[in-house]
């Protein structure tokens, strides 16, 4: 157990939308350099908001970090414009892929490389096409005509073009068939290992996320309610019951069957 550097430290942040809606209520988390850290939680828990607070994209949605601090490397990236944060090596792949549909695949990748010198473009492009051969086959095609899975690959490839040090991935499995989820997750793992990119991974698919992450946080209602090593979370009966869809006897159980108040009581009470 060699002590790794904390690349990102989010400390007690509060986020308010439109000056009134308090969405994050004192959230803290830490991301170790070189690791994959998972951030899990139900719909509306505030996962995307957390990522946008870190990347600075919140401002465009009339959201504001009203309290707390966001430390990255040895400085603060709190409240700075997103383009600055990207240049410092933090890149968010937004929920829902958000490819530029009327640009070609390769033009999308060029956008990813916007902050990088032209000299390294060709080499990066080869590398991304190596991870995603399907993008190479379709490089002249408009991104809008790609399938959902291909668009997700493009979204991740676009991020790699920026050579991030910290990658914020927001639900990369969203809307993908199980086979494809597996493929995407194994590529995420590879990126982490081969490129040495630190990853903060937001997911609904808790099992897939915890299977590639080293550490996990679970959030509810704007706060972290539980955290631990991924293996420990996978074996935790509460997590099994509420996030992995298993009852205590190991039988499958729908997440919907669980009463909301009961979850809250267990974790907050």
């Amino acid at each position: 157990m060699e002590p790794a550097l904390d690349l990102l430290r989010v400390e007690n942040i509060e986020v308010v939308y439109n000056d009134v809606v308090l969405v994050l209520k004192g959230l803290s988390l830490t991301v170790r350099e070189g690791r994959i850290t998972a951030l899990l939680g139900a719909n509306g828990a505030g996962k995307s908001t957390t990522l946008k607070a870190i990347s600075g994209l919140l401002a465009g949605e009339n959201g504001e970090v009203t309290d707390g601090s966001i430390l990255y490397g040895d400085g603060s990236i709190h409240r700075q414009p997103p383009e600055r944060t990207v240049r410092q090596g933090v890149f968010q792949v937004m929920e829902g892929r958000r490819v530029f549909e009327d640009l070609t695949v390769e033009e999308n990748l060029r956008c990813g490389a916007f902050t990088r010198p032209t000299a390294e473009f060709a080499e990066r492009l080869d590398r991304v096409y190596g991870y995603f051969p399907r993008l190479a086959e379709r490089k002249a095609q408009l991104a809008g005509y790609m399938s959902g899975g291909e668009q997700q690959m493009l979204a991740i490839g676009r991020a790699l073009m920026a050579r991030p040090r910290l990658l914020l991935l927001d639900e990369p499995s969203l809307g993908l068939a199980p086979m494809l989820v597996e493929e995407i997750f194994s590529i995420i793992r590879t990126i982490n290992e081969q490129e040495g990119v630190t990853i903060l991974l937001v997911e609904q698919n808790a099992r897939a996320a915890l299977s590639i992450a080293e550490y996990g946080y679970i959030m509810e209602n704007g706060r972290i309610v539980m955290d631990g090593e991924a293996a420990a979370l996978l074996n935790n009966p509460d997590v099994q019951e509420f996030y992995l869809g298993m009852g205590h006897g190991g039988e499958k159980r729908s997440y919907r069957d669980v009463k909301h108040y009961r979850r809250r009581k267990r974790w907050l009470g």
Partner: peptide, 13 residues
């Protein structure tokens, strides 16, 4: 890119 999606463009830096 900005014309298509401002926020996504911002996320590219």
């Amino acid at each position: 890119a900005t014309a298509f999606d401002q926020q996504a463009a911002q996320s590219m830096g």
